[in-house]
């Protein structure tokens, strides 16, 4: 069987796909920011001296790490409005779901980074008379940051690709537009091929960048 490729369809509809890319990028960046900030709060909770707060933060991270992302997205879109009475647009539902999800993973990255710094640093700082907050701010976080950068890069790349899942709740990002065009034009093969290529072209350089970060910070140890 010989398939007749018809890429003209793609070029005719390229503006639509481009508009999807914009939304994909916006959703990724905003989710990352929200997750980075909320994740810091959760990480500090996990490192706090209070058992109940540590337990709460632990449950949070495990909940988001052990359920499928698609389930989380759908849950936030359909169930959260019923529970809270607040209905979001599909985009904001996606943002909430990703923000909460990324926060769980970021919290683990922060925590691993901070605990990897080692007991000796904390003891030396406390012995100088620093408060716990000063130890965190002056000693632990600055050292942890370089160790966190590579895993954050890895997570960013999976986040960028995973945003395609929100097409399931009707966010008009790249994947949604591709699905729409596939039906509309009867040319799913071309459309999805180009869609995959677009993801690849955007993600591949970033992947190289992340590998470089791993290399850079590993040899620094």
């Amino acid at each position: 069987m010989k398939y007749q490729w018809h890429f003209e369809v793609v070029w005719e509809n390229f503006p639509i796909m481009l508009s999807g890319i914009g939304l994909t990028i916006a959703l990724s960046i905003l989710s990352m920011l929200a997750g980075a900030i909320l994740g810091m709060v959760i990480a500090l909770a996990r490192l706090s001296p209070w058992t109940w707060l540590r337990g709460l933060a632990y449950c949070y991270t495990e909940l988001f790490r052990t359920t499928p992302l698609l389930v989380q997205i759908v849950w936030v879109f359909y169930v959260l409005p019923l529970v809270t009475g607040i209905a979001f647009t599909p985009f904001y539902s996606g943002l909430v779901a990703f923000g909460l999800n990324i926060a769980a993973f970021m919290a683990e990255i922060y925590r691993a980074g901070i605990t990897s710094v080692g007991q000796g640093q904390t003891q030396a700082s406390l012995a100088l008379g620093m408060t716990n907050a000063q130890v965190m701010r002056r000693i632990l976080i600055p050292q942890a940051v370089t160790r966190m950068i590579p895993p954050i890069g890895t997570m960013w790349i999976s986040l960028f690709k995973d945003t395609s899942l929100v097409s399931a709740i009707g966010v008009t990002e790249l994947m949604y537009q591709a699905r729409f065009l596939a039906v509309d034009t009867y040319r799913p093969v071309e459309i999805f091929t180009v869609c995959a290529l677009i993801y690849f072209v955007i993600t591949f350089p970033q992947s190289i960048g992340v590998n470089w970060l791993y290399h850079k910070y590993r040899t620094r140890e």
Partner: peptide, 19 residues
């Protein structure tokens, strides 16, 4: 923190701040 200021401590592993 206030009393610890007055007590200097030196460790086997130095524990200098590497950054």
């Amino acid at each position: 923190p206030k009393v610890r200021r007055n007590i200097g401590m030196i460790f086997q592993q130095f524990n200098l701040f590497p950054h």
